[in-house]
């Protein structure tokens, strides 16, 4: 992974600023817009402003936060709430595992890695997975932190805004803001991901996700990831060894 740095900011500090500059545009706006929806949902569900606001940087996973609010409203058993939210965060294990080898290469103190792990979520992860291979190892962690901190700020701003405007915002505006999130994620993955195993995994996952959800809502993500991801991995491996073994094409 090292030695092939095609893009360098010229030091960790510059990488931190560079990452922040990249995030302070569409990515931060998208996070703010998505969290407006969450803030409004929290207000309408009778959650306190401070609880909703605290949950944004502390949980830092929009789907999990939505699960939390919805289960609290439904007055679910508290153990079920904790299990539901925790289970919905299982994606962070393979995500962190896939990203960390890039961040580890410059051998940063491990407390920095454990702190940075809190910032792992779709938007920043996708940006770091794309940029890290092209960055010198010592700039990667700074770039990732620089990119994600403005997202947290944007999300917190969105949470408070949505909470404040929940009663006055027109329904169509609310719907539009909530839809920004999945559309943006979809385009990021459609446009950014080039490696064959990742493309295969995305395609299989996109089809398997809703099917698994219809089958078993609470286990659907784990099922989609393990079955879909393993299928993509095996297809890619067969592809890799295919030409060598067959000798043709």
């Amino acid at each position: 992974m090292s030695g092939a740095a095609t893009h360098a900011y010229g030091g960790p500090r510059a990488a931190l600023r560079g990452g922040a500059r990249e995030a302070l545009g569409l990515p931060a706006f998208v996070l703010a817009a998505s969290y407006v929806g969450f803030g409004a949902l929290a207000q309408q569900s009778g959650l306190g402003l401070w609880l909703a606001l605290a949950s944004t940087p502390a949980v830092w996973a929009l789907p999990g936060q939505v699960v939390l609010v919805e289960m609290l409203v439904l007055r679910a058993e508290w153990l079920a709430v904790v299990a539901g939210v925790s289970l919905s965060a299982a994606r962070f294990l393979p995500m962190t595992l896939a990203l960390l080898p890039y961040l580890r290469e410059a051998r940063p103190a491990s407390w920095r890695l454990y702190a940075a792990a809190q910032l792992v979520a779709v938007t920043g992860w996708a940006a770091a997975m794309r940029q890290c291979p092209q960055l010198p190892p010592e700039e990667r962690l700074s770039y990732f932190v620089g990119f994600t901190l403005p997202l947290v700020a944007g999300a917190a701003f969105g949470t408070a805004t949505g909470f404040a405007l929940a009663d006055v915002m027109p329904r169509a505006v609310m719907l539009a803001l909530v839809f920004v999130n999945p559309i943006y994620f979809m385009l990021v993955f459609v446009g950014d991901v080039r490696q064959r195993p990742a493309v295969l995994a995305l395609a299989i996952g996109a089809i398997a996700g809703p099917l698994a959800h219809a089958l078993t809502p609470s286990w659907s993500l784990l099922l989609t990831g393990l079955v879909g991801g393993t299928a993509a991995f095996l297809i890619d491996r067969a592809w890799r060894s295919g030409p060598r073994r067959g000798g043709s094409s």
């Binding site: 789907p63 299982a90 994606r91 393979p94 995500m95 595992l97 896939a98 779709v122 999130n181 999945p182 994620f185 979809m186 993955f189 991901v193 195993p197 990742a198 295969l200 995994a201 995305l202 395609a203 299989i204 996952g205 996109a206 089809i207 398997a208 996700g209 809703p210 698994a212 959800h213 659907s220 993500l221 784990l222 989609t224 990831g225 393990l226 079955v227 879909g228 991801g229 393993t230 993509a232 991995f233 890619d236």
Partner: peptide
Amino acid sequence: VGCVAYAMLAGLISRM
């Protein structure tokens, strides 16, 4: 592990 992560995220987004 990368494949599992991408499949999970695609599944989540497509479910959303």
